[in-house]
Amino acid sequence: MKKLINDPRYIVEEMVEGYVKAHPNHIKQLPENDRALVTARETREGKVGVLIGGGSGHEPGFMGYVGDGMADGVAVGNIFASPSPDPILEVTKAIDKGAGVVYLYGNYAGDVMNFGMAAEMADLEEDIQVGTALASDDVASAPKEEKEKRRGIAGEFFIYKAAGAAADFGYNLDDVVRVAKKANENTRSMGVGLSPCSLPQTGEPSFEIGDDEMEIGLGHHGEPGIEKGPIESADKVADRLVHDILADIEINSGDKVAVLVNGLGSTPRMELYIVYRRVEQILREKGIEIYRSYVGDYITSLEMGGCSVTLMKLDEELERAIDHPVDCPMFVQK
């Protein structure tokens, strides 16, 4: 597959360099580690630091969500791979304002291991208290009775949003973690894959799928879904995704939700809005109120084709968090 790159060995470094140069008013690179990025704006003493991170290839996740109202720093990994503990620790030290730091990341083995190691190092070597909240919103990745095994996909965006707002509100570390975990507990996602992406180092497709096929429940790194079959209309796909979400979480008539229809990298917004149109119809027919909606590329997978639907059930606290203004390079909400 064709790509606009130089040497594949340096693709992440060159991307980070370009990103920092493009957004100098929002983000800066720490001299101690070129994979450690923090907000370029001064944060107040006593504020809980919010640290996010994960593999590259998911842009605008995760660098794009460092800024006012969301994350204070990000640790950047190789493509589809966890950052090592070193940049995580450097970001932790840089964003700690005396109230501790919360780590937000997807439920993947590499991330769990490396962020866990960094948290131990922060505690033992730097005397910084760290709290953790994992994203595990992907309905397809494990049954409901084993939801602790589920991976995080596009719902991570809502968890960043909720935790960033809580930190801005002046919540202490325990309460920021609580809000992040509440956001995760009330968030469900389901995706469909239409075409693979390819890793720059290999140029090979991340999975095999026929030109006339789709895969329900496909993971953001090409992990197998739960069902492969002939491609169907946007309405039928939306029906399936929303059905599986609502079968997994109790959302009733009169409840409010935030909705995200997320592109995986190569799906035109035209198609995402067609999917959103059907999602809105389904929820309206069920008496479920859409409090806020988001449509676009929020957590991608290089040039993968397809999309995911995410619903977050809201209460008053999560409504306030979702309304909070944000100013990040890749996401602004007034």
Score class of each variant (00 low, 15 high):
residue 135 A to K: 00
residue 69 G to S: 06
residue 78 N to P: 01
residue 51 L to R: 02
residue 255 D to V: 13
residue 26 H to I: 02
residue 116 G to M: 07
residue 244 D to L: 13
residue 250 E to I: 12
residue 148 E to M: 06
residue 203 G to C: 05
residue 199 L to Y: 14
residue 16 V to E: 04
residue 37 L to C: 04
residue 82 S to D: 10
residue 308 S to R: 01
residue 139 V to N: 02
residue 333 Q to S: 15
residue 301 S to P: 13
residue 186 N to V: 00
residue 302 L to M: 12
residue 71 A to Y: 02
residue 181 K to V: 07
residue 119 A to R: 12
residue 139 V to F: 02
residue 267 T to W: 08
residue 157 F to G: 02
residue 216 I to Q: 01
residue 180 A to T: 01
residue 86 D to Y: 11
residue 7 D to W: 05
residue 133 A to R: 00
residue 175 D to A: 03
residue 320 R to C: 07
residue 308 S to G: 15
residue 27 I to F: 06
residue 246 L to C: 09
residue 25 N to D: 15
residue 113 M to I: 08
residue 234 A to T: 11
residue 216 I to D: 03
residue 107 N to V: 00
residue 128 I to K: 03
residue 225 G to M: 12
residue 115 F to I: 00
residue 293 S to W: 04
residue 244 D to K: 13
residue 58 H to N: 06
residue 197 C to N: 11
residue 158 F to W: 13
residue 236 K to F: 14
residue 43 T to W: 09
residue 111 D to T: 00
residue 8 P to D: 07
residue 201 Q to M: 12
residue 320 R to L: 14
residue 121 M to P: 04
residue 259 V to Y: 03
residue 13 E to M: 07
residue 158 F to V: 07
residue 280 E to F: 08
residue 57 G to D: 03
residue 250 E to L: 11
residue 36 A to Q: 02
residue 297 D to I: 05
residue 99 A to N: 15
residue 140 A to S: 13
residue 39 T to D: 06
residue 52 I to S: 01
residue 216 I to N: 01
residue 281 Q to S: 15
residue 32 E to H: 02
residue 104 L to M: 07
residue 306 G to P: 14
residue 40 A to L: 08
residue 23 H to V: 10
residue 286 K to N: 14
residue 1 M to S: 15
residue 102 V to M: 01
residue 126 E to W: 04
residue 285 E to H: 12
residue 234 A to Y: 13
residue 222 G to Q: 08
residue 301 S to Q: 08
